[in-house]
């Protein structure tokens, strides 16, 4: 056998070994966080319900991941997103959005959401409690306040995901 063939064959064996023992395991260790869907199956079903039952391009409020998912699955506009640097007054919007979900005051939440003409609130209790709400980092939202008649009205409640109308 020619020397060139032997060297190329040995090279290919090394490539296969490198792929199997280094590259593939390395990527399996490095990438899961980036491939994480974050949003739950329940949230996606709720968004599909919203696509069918809520006027398209309505203004929703949610956490960052739910918001971005809603733009695609439910064809809606949302209060915040990941590309915060591209927004009008993004830090104020982020802060107000976060406050609306974290405050225990239904009135304060209503006022903050009304300030940005939000008509629907999208909330979910995710199974991983440290991934419940993302704005400035992961936070724990207080969602009981949205059950305040006169300020909010629940229109969807299934599998720990709820949608409210902002009155």
């Amino acid at each position: 056998m020619e020397r060139r063939t032997l060297i190329s064959a040995a090279f290919l064996l090394a490539c296969a070994y490198l792929s199997a023992t280094y590259t593939y395991p390395q990527m399996r260790a490095a990438l899961p966080g980036w491939y994480d869907p974050v949003v739950t199956a329940s949230e996606i079903r709720a968004a599909e319900w919203a696509y069918d039952n809520v006027p398209h391009q309505s203004h929703f409020a949610g956490d960052m991941f739910a918001c971005e998912m809603l733009t695609a699955v439910a064809f809606q506009i949302c209060s915040i997103g990941g590309a915060w640097e591209l927004a009008d007054n993004p830090n104020q919007r982020y802060m107000d959005n976060e406050r609306a979900f974290l405050t225990d005051s239904a009135t304060e939440a209503h006022d903050l959401l009304a300030k940005y003409n939000i008509t629907y609130v999208f909330v979910s209790t995710r199974q991983e409690p440290n991934k419940n709400f993302y704005a400035y980092g992961w936070k724990q939202p207080l969602i009981e306040k949205f059950d305040t008649p006169g300020l909010f009205e629940k229109i969807y409640d299934n599998e720990s995901t709820e949608i409210y109308v902002v009155k």
Binding site: P32, W34, Y35, D36, P37, E68, M69, T71, G82, A83
Partner: peptide, 19 residues
């Protein structure tokens, strides 16, 4: 990893929303 939906990091759903 993303079997139940799609990866959502890095604004990928914003681009899906535009699509």
């Amino acid at each position: 990893v993303a079997g139940r939906f799609l990866p959502t990091w890095d604004n990928s759903m914003l681009h899906a929303g535009r699509a």
